[in-house]
Amino acid sequence: MKNHLRDLRADRGWSQADLAERLDVSRQTINAIETEKYDPSLPLAFKIADLFELKIEEIFVPNKGK
């Protein structure tokens, strides 16, 4: 699944570690989501959406054909 997490994080001037701290996950998790190696669970996706004050679908974009 594609996402805009890296851009959103960069807009706020946060490092991966900063975002990880805010979401209470590991930096590895943030990196894996940003590089699209890992799709977050629904609760984490909601947490991310809450943090950025956006809707989930404004952050995560499903791959076409999947």
């Binding site: 996950v25 590991s26 590895q28 998790t29 890992y38 977050p40």
Partner: peptide, 8 residues
């Protein structure tokens, strides 16, 4: 007690 990626 780990986060979801580590659990995975």
């Amino acid at each position: 007690g780990l986060d979801e990626l580590q659990q995975r």
